[in-house]
């Protein structure tokens, strides 16, 4: 009997929760704010779904209701991706400077 592919995805999901658990506990408390902004950025990988939806419009018209939601989602996710990574970069750069300064 074949195993439903869903089970494989579920396995990935469960194992990733455990990875997340151990990785996040090892994050130093002083970097908890950058942690939040970077998790924000990476969870916007949901943009892949938005792109699929956006490109799904049939050849006749680019815009139908479904692809329109896709396009909006692309913009929202892009705000997060660029904003999230850049603001994290900005914060982490501040942590970097110091040791040399003093």
């Amino acid at each position: 009997m074949e195993i439903d592919p869903f089970i494989f995805r579920l396995s990935i999901f469960i194992l990733s929760i455990f990875i997340g658990y151990y990785v996040v506990w090892s994050v130093t408390p002083s970097l908890h704010t950058p942690l939040m902004s970077v998790t924000n950025a990476i969870s916007s990988v949901i943009i892949v779904g938005a792109i699929i939806a956006g490109l799904a419009g049939n050849s006749g018209s680019i815009f139908n209701t479904s692809s329109l939601f896709g396009f909006l989602a692309i913009s929202l996710a892009a705000i997060n991706i660029f904003g999230g990574f850049l603001v994290t970069q900005r914060m982490l750069a501040m942590y970097k400077k110091k040791k040399k300064d003093k």
Binding site: F13, L35, I42, S43, I46, V48, I52
Partner: peptide, 28 residues
């Protein structure tokens, strides 16, 4: 939420990320 959508789209990157972010927020 991202993980839920990841299951729908059958997308590994989204499932992994959703789980990471979900547990990260829970720990915080």
């Amino acid at each position: 939420a991202a993980a839920g959508i990841g299951f729908t789209l059958e997308n590994t990157a989204l499932i992994i990320t959703g789980a990471l972010v979900g547990s990260s927020g829970a720990i915080l």
